[in-house]
């Protein structure tokens, strides 16, 4: 196992897999941070279950990407510097309060649910098989987080205020989900990945329904954050990676 950071030959397919995998691992890591801190035992297990679903999806995607790029899943997770991570900024932001944690799952899952559904018809059979597993998991994440958001928004004065603040804080990070660069376009043209533009209608409809039931107003069109897909991250990712990668960086190749 190499002891220093790895660099990858990012073919369009490898890059696409890393973008999906990094989203899943980073959000999974964030949700795992709630373990031992969640408001109730029931929600602690719900958050941990979602974290494990996402980390499981990431493992399958890393294993596939690694088989194409010549690395194993651990190397992809533990030996890439922040600039080599391809996740969207939305998933790397700190958890914030419970409302912000829940809202992030809503925004992300409302996109990933139709995305994985469409990917089950991918021309790439390995990716289609991963999508078939992930789609069921993310469908529940969406249902669970949406039910919570409805209760937070339509709950007490304080829960409404917190849900509203979360919406204002995270909304500018939602646009990155729909980005498609040349590499994405190559995957779309090859029938391997869905065009995110075609998922917009479903995402809009989901958000409109959930926000209305949560008595929350959809923020107006605003400038959208960008950069994660090309490795330009917030400072928060560095701290997260320090936590995630510490063991393999300090004790290269350590196993147990």
């Amino acid at each position: 196992m190499p002891t220093t950071s790895i660099t990858l030959d990012e073919t369009p397919l490898v890059l696409h897999l890393l973008r999906r995998a990094d989203d899943a691992l980073i959000l999974g890591h964030r949700l795992s941070e709630w373990t031992g801190h969640a408001p109730t035992l029931e929600e602690e297990l719900a958050l941990a279950n979602m974290a494990l679903d996402l980390i499981g999806q990431a493992r399958l995607l890393y294993a596939y990407a690694g088989s194409l790029a010549g690395h194993d899943e651990d190397q992809l997770a533990y030996l890439r510097d922040a600039r080599a991570w391809r996740n969207c900024l939305l998933v790397e932001l700190p958890n914030g309060d419970f409302a912000q944690t829940i809202l992030r799952i809503v925004l992300f899952s409302a996109f990933m649910d139709p995305c994985w559904q469409a990917t089950t018809r991918s021309a790439d059979p390995t990716l289609a098989a991963i999508a078939a597993k992930a789609e069921k998991e993310v469908a529940y994440h969406l249902r669970h987080s949406a039910e919570w958001l409805i209760r937070l928004g339509d709950g007490t004065e304080e829960s409404h205020r917190r849900a509203e603040a979360a919406l204002d804080a995270l909304w500018p990070y939602s646009g990155e989900l729909f980005e498609a660069d040349a590499a994405d376009q190559a995957m779309i043209d090859a029938g391997i990945a869905p065009d995110p533009a075609t998922l917009r209608g479903t995402w809009d409809a989901t958000l409109a329904d959930v926000l209305a039931r949560a008595t929350l107003a959809r923020p107006g069109d605003t400038w959208m954050q960008t950069g994660g897909r090309t490795g330009r991250h917030t400072e928060h990712l560095g701290y997260l990676l320090a936590d995630l990668q510490y063991l393999q960086r300090a004790y290269p190749g350590a196993t147990w």
Binding site: E42, E43, L45, A46, N49, H144, E147, W148
Partner: peptide
């Protein structure tokens, strides 16, 4: 939410 908690 009880049903979801039970599932989880």
């Amino acid at each position: 939410l009880a049903l979801q908690a039970a599932r989880d």
